Amino acid sequence: MRYMLLIYANEAAMAAAPTERTYEISAAYGAYTEALKKSGAWLAGDRLKPTQAATAVRMANGKTNVLDGPYADTKEQLAGFYMIEAEDADAAIAWAARCPGASAGTIEVRPIWEMTEYPSEK
Rank of each mutant, 00 (worst) to 15 (best):
T51S: 15
I7W: 09
G80N: 02
P111G: 02
R110M: 00
T64A: 15
A60Y: 15
Y71P: 05
A9P: 01
V66D: 10
I112Q: 03
E121H: 11
M1I: 08
F81A: 08
T116F: 03
L48A: 06
A9V: 00
A54K: 02
R2E: 15
A35V: 10
M1W: 04
Q52T: 15
G105C: 03
G101V: 02
T19Q: 06
Y118I: 07
P50K: 14
P18G: 08
A72I: 11
M83E: 07
Y71E: 06
K37T: 13
R2P: 09
A94S: 09
A16V: 04
T22K: 10
P100L: 03
A54P: 06
E114N: 08
G101A: 12
L43T: 14
R2C: 02
R21F: 02
N10F: 00
Y3Q: 03
T55S: 15
A44M: 14
T19L: 05
D88T: 07
N65S: 13
A53G: 07
Y82A: 08
K122L: 11
T74R: 09
G62T: 12
R2Q: 15
W42T: 12
K49S: 13
Y23S: 09
K49W: 12
T33C: 13
M1T: 11
R21Q: 12
K63C: 13
Y23C: 06
Y71V: 11
R21G: 02
T106M: 08
T64D: 11
G62A: 12
S103K: 04
A72R: 12
Y8E: 08
G105Y: 00
A27F: 04
P111E: 02
K122R: 14
Y82M: 02
P119E: 10
S39D: 15
A104T: 13
I112S: 02
W113Y: 10
Y32S: 03
R47Y: 13
A31N: 14
W95R: 08
S26P: 03
P100A: 02
E117M: 10
G69F: 08
V109T: 07
S39I: 15
